Computed example of a mutant assay.
Amino acid sequence: MAAKVLDQDSKLDLLLKKMEDVDRKQEASEKRREQSEEKSRADFLALKVAVESRFPEVEKRVDLLQESVLDLQEQVDKLQSLVKSFPAASGDGKLNSSSFSPTTPKDHSVSLSGILAGSARISGNVPPMCCPQFDGDNPQMWKSNCEEYFEIYGVHPRNWVRVAGLNFSGNAAFWLQSMRPKLVGVTWQEFTNQVCLRFTKDRKEVLIRQWFHIAQDSSVSEYVEKFDGIMHQLLAYSSSLPLNYFVTKFVEGLKPAIRSGVLMQKPQDLDSACSLALLQEEILEGSCSARSIVAPSGKTIS
């Protein structure tokens, strides 16, 4: 009897151990399943991020493709209209002379090569010109000139950055060379923003320093030329300064002898102040010449 009980106990212990092994295996399997699900979710999220990061580039390329298609369609339409404008052939294969009647003139001034090159936008005879050069000075003017050039010669917008970059020189060329890896695929607006951000700050600081120290150290005409150049460059950065500010700044920079005469006239605009300064300089020079004339008695005539 005791042997049977011991045998049953051993079997029960063995059964319990097997159940524990099964539970451990189930737990391990469940853990592996959870780890696999977490890894799958992480891989899916990484794939989603990678795909979404490509969306802007894909959309940009789609936009460029649409522009190219529209440009090609426009060129095809122009070619078709040009072909239709040629005189039709008669049944025997010869051109119909009635098509050349002086009462129905045809305009064949646009060539096929001009249409294919996109130069049909040019009106009239435009002489050949080089793309505006940029050496780091006045980036706003350079940007405006480039856009005018591209519009006149029908350069496609996707080529604006490359064409403009070929015409950088000096420090601007060195800067562009160092920035090329960061400028791959940028639009014209993004490119010009980078150029203006880099070269506007330094140039503006130089102009402000020159503006603070500007004063007449030679003739009035030379002072006017220097003052006018710095003023218009500053206005390119900010056009909110009032007119009387420039008038006051101009008068304060004149030599004392000339400034006193101009202040007495109270000029209301810059042109009047310049004219008064030139007139005052002429009067002072005339006075000096008169005092330098020596009378026959040896005395100076005042």
Rank of each mutant, 00 (worst) to 15 (best):
N244Q: 14
V186S: 02
G253I: 02
N159Y: 14
R209G: 09
R198Q: 10
Y237H: 13
T192E: 07
S169Q: 11
K201H: 10
I214P: 00
F191Q: 01
E205C: 08
E205L: 11
S238G: 08
L166Y: 13
F227A: 02
I230K: 01
R162H: 15
S169A: 15
L197Y: 07
R162C: 09
Y245C: 05
R209L: 13
Q189D: 15
H232K: 14
L207H: 03
N167W: 14
F227R: 03
N171Q: 12
Q177C: 15
L183H: 06
V224T: 05
L166N: 15
K249L: 04
L243V: 09
R162A: 14
S221A: 11
N244I: 13
N244M: 13
S218N: 10
E252Q: 13
F246H: 09
S219G: 15
S219F: 10
T200Q: 14
I214R: 02
S218V: 08
Q233R: 06
F227M: 01
S219W: 11
L235S: 08
G185E: 13
L197C: 09
F246Q: 03
E222S: 06
E222G: 00
M231W: 00
K204W: 11
F212I: 12
S218F: 06
F250E: 03
F199Q: 05
R162P: 00
